[in-house]
Computed example of a mutant assay.
Amino acid sequence: MNSGASLNELSPERRLRRLELTITRRLDGLLHGSYLGLLPGPGSEPAGSREYRPGEDEVRRMDWAVTARTTVPHVRTVDADRELTTWVLADATASMDFGTAEYEKRELAIAAVAAVGFLAAGTGNRLGAHLVTPGGVRRFPARGGRTHLLGVLRALLAVPRAAPAAEPAPLAGALEALRRAAPRRGLIVVVSDFLDGLDDDGLGSQAPAWEQPLRRLAAHHQVLAVQVGDPREHDLPDVGLLALVDPETGRRREVHTGSRRLRERYAAAARRQQTGITTAIRRTGAAHLPLRTDRDWVADIVRHVHARRRLGRAARRGAST
């Protein structure tokens, strides 16, 4: 995806082929032998206990029996699952139809879903998906196989752009519906810009509407929040008079970007909004993987994988001491 035509300039089948080649050439092999990489958390199979580390371990993983026996706080350790059920919730609402760099946010979201699907594929593994579209939520049951994954990706590629002022499905409701659809513990990947459900000023000064549903998911599943963003959501360029259109409402506003004060205020507001989103995701207990349209998404995923594996190795060393 980092060279040649944009995904939007290719036919659906050529888009899928390019994604699969990119993933298999640059990412394949990272998860072989362990599912501790792309997705957070160690799994669900009991593997023993180790001493509790304040600030690092979750209290809900306390092993109270060992703690009582030893009088030293311990947490349960678990091994990675070998047969996984992965659920993907992909945001394809109007706010994702935006991009000022190499590709749009929706293209990046499709790439993230493809990476999860191809990397988590394996014998006995299953993938389910909920696609949040302008017309509502489209659901795909958890099934195995490459054909099923390609069907999910084709459906995501075919989602039409939303008309301005169309009423999108709220992210909070989609998360709650996914929780009901996935009763068995597994891996949940939420791909969105997480701009839906913020308070009225959009700055994240109050808890987003999606925080509680995401927290409930993370209490039972391993959850990865993939946040898709664009550089223009963080700062404005100095290009004179600029027409801005809200893709969700169609509202149009002309802004004089030559004003340094205006650009600084915009950047400060964007930082507060991003801080609010990051903090809310962290409060839920989900892992956070930011991807941007002006960055190498493959390299960002690789860095996330290596970081999760370092944490996993550290946890295993702690369990053996």
Rank of each mutant, 00 (worst) to 15 (best):
Y103C: 06
V59E: 06
D79G: 01
E56Q: 13
K105G: 09
D79S: 09
A47K: 11
D97V: 05
M96T: 04
G55V: 11
P73I: 04
R60T: 08
Y103H: 11
T85S: 07
T93M: 10
H74E: 14
D63F: 00
D63T: 03
T85C: 06
D63W: 01
A68V: 12
M96K: 05
A65F: 08
V75A: 06
T85D: 03
V75Y: 04
D97A: 13
R82E: 04
A90D: 04
D91C: 02
T100L: 01
T85N: 03
E107Y: 00
R82D: 06
D81M: 05
K105E: 11
V88I: 07
T77V: 15
A68L: 14
V88S: 00
Y52W: 02
Y103L: 10
G99Y: 00
Y103V: 04
D57I: 07
T93P: 02
E102H: 14
V72P: 03
S95R: 05
H74M: 15
R82A: 05
E83I: 06
V78D: 11
W87A: 07
F98K: 13
V88Y: 00
G99D: 04
T93R: 15
D81L: 12
H74L: 15
R61S: 13
T67P: 11
T100K: 01
S95D: 11
W64D: 07
S49A: 15
E104V: 12
E102Y: 11
A92E: 06
A47R: 09
P54S: 11
R53N: 03
V59N: 01
E51S: 09
A47L: 05
A90N: 08
D57H: 11
A68F: 09
F98A: 10
A68S: 14
M62I: 15
T86P: 00
S95G: 06
P73W: 03
V75L: 05
D57F: 05
F98C: 10
E102K: 13
R60Q: 08
E56W: 12
G48Q: 12
Y52S: 01
T100M: 01
L89H: 03
T86Y: 00
R50D: 09
R69A: 13
A101W: 03
E83V: 10
G99A: 04
T85G: 08
S95P: 08
V88R: 00
R50L: 10
E51V: 15
A47W: 02
P73S: 07
W64C: 07
V66I: 14
R50T: 13
D91R: 03
A90W: 04
T93K: 10
L84V: 13
E104I: 06
R50A: 07
D63Y: 02
A94Y: 01
T77D: 12
Y103E: 09
V66A: 15
A65I: 12
